[in-house]
Computed example of a mutant assay.
Amino acid sequence: MRTRLSILCGLAAMMTMAAMSAAAGVQAVRQHAGDIQLAGVVPKNSAEQFELAFWNSVKDSKQVGDYEAYLKAYPKGRFAALARARIQQLKSAPQQVPAPAQKPVAQPAKPAESKPAREQAQARTANTSKAQQGKARPQQADATDDDQEEAPAPNTAGAMATVKDCEACPTMVALSPGPFTMGSNSSDPSEKPAHKVALRTPFAIGKYEVTVDQWRQCIKANVCPTVPLPDDAPGNIPMRDVSWDEAQLYIKWLTTASGKPYRLPTEAEWEYAARGGTATRYWWGDEMKGGNSSCKDCGQPWKMEEPPPVGSFPANPFGLHDMNGSVWEWVQDCWHSSYKGAPTDGSAWAEPNCQTRVIRGGSWREDGSYMLSTTRFKYDASVRQSQNGLRVARSLK
């Protein structure tokens, strides 16, 4: 027994020394990275700006996959050495010696599928300070998957009834088409020019982002890949760390399961849905206010490690939750650095052999400046990143 304990102590000491060495390496590389100076201000909508934004989104992560995603996108990037050192540090972190096995305690039966619950979300947000809450929140839509649930009345004639095509299918909100102004002339250059878009076809879009439980059903069908989320990850949080290519696998499975032509929303459909019939910077107005979206310093519930359950924040006027914040959402379109030449009928802006796709909406790790309805960014279609998820859509004609 004493010999075994000595061996375990020796192993723990060796792992601790390795972790300390890796930490020292990270510190040295971080100091070097801090010495990197860019020539003047990083221009918006430039390669440097996109790399910097990518790095800033993962630099505090504790997941190896986030740094591997950065290295895949920027193998010779200015933070590549720091990313490799951080990977070494995380892989060298000492592991706790497992405690002696104990007799398992019987647990109550777990529900077959976790569902978003308005009552739980309201209870969690009850302790939010008045400063964070701002004005009284509008009453949230009932976060259940009932087929006949009515969407909140929108400011314009946009939202209709909810749609649920199969037991495994996400609940969607049916939207009637209409005109709106897409983009912004006063924000990032990639959002210019603001232009009129007239959607011509009614479509349905996910009331919530695709959840972990919903993705797990696709895994059980041997279609979707297993994504490195914790085994105990709640089933009602948004699925993330999914590439655009992997999102297409989920879409394909859902189409087969439902018999309906599922897809990702087009970028124009996504912004139309996110605005909820409004023309302001955010769906709730022109000023950022806490308590409306899952983002850093934007109110509870929030934690750095993962986004809160879907439906934890109020729905927009179309009855859609978490369009701003939570996780970045893949859309169907190829990336273009501006809207010059973009379709004006709401269709996807696609091209052959497109390698870079658009993501929309910001995530829980970004601050309020990313919560604008016009916010957009890009990723390689094959890259996983722990802040990227999806919301499904399909045409209704």
Rank of each mutant, 00 (worst) to 15 (best):
T3S: 09
L5R: 15
L11P: 02
A18I: 04
M20V: 13
G25W: 09
V26F: 01
V26N: 01
Q31V: 11
Q31M: 13
D35Q: 14
D35A: 09
I36Y: 04
Q37A: 09
G40S: 09
S46D: 12
W55F: 08
V58D: 02
Q63P: 00
Y67A: 07
K76N: 11
R78T: 07
R78G: 01
A81K: 03
P98F: 00
A99D: 03
K103Y: 06
K103M: 07
P108W: 00
P111W: 04
A117G: 05
R118S: 12
R118C: 05
E119N: 10
Q122I: 13
A131W: 10
K135W: 02
A136T: 09
Q140F: 04
D142L: 14
D145H: 06
D146T: 12
A153W: 00
A157E: 09
K164P: 04
T171P: 02
P177Q: 04
F180Q: 10
G183K: 09
S187C: 12
A194K: 12
L199E: 02
L199R: 06
A204D: 01
I205V: 15
D213N: 13
W215Q: 06
Q217V: 07
C218D: 02
C218K: 02
L229Q: 05
M239L: 15
R240D: 05
D245G: 08
A247G: 15
L254A: 15
A268W: 07
E271W: 10
G276R: 04
G277E: 11
E287L: 12
E287R: 15
G291A: 06
N292L: 14
S293L: 11
G311P: 01
G319F: 10
G325D: 05
S338C: 07
S338W: 10
S347T: 15
A350L: 14
P352I: 06
C354Q: 03
T356V: 15
S363K: 00
E366R: 01
S373Q: 08
T374W: 03
R376G: 00
S382K: 02
R384Y: 03
Q385V: 05
Q387K: 04
L390N: 02
V392Y: 00
L396E: 08
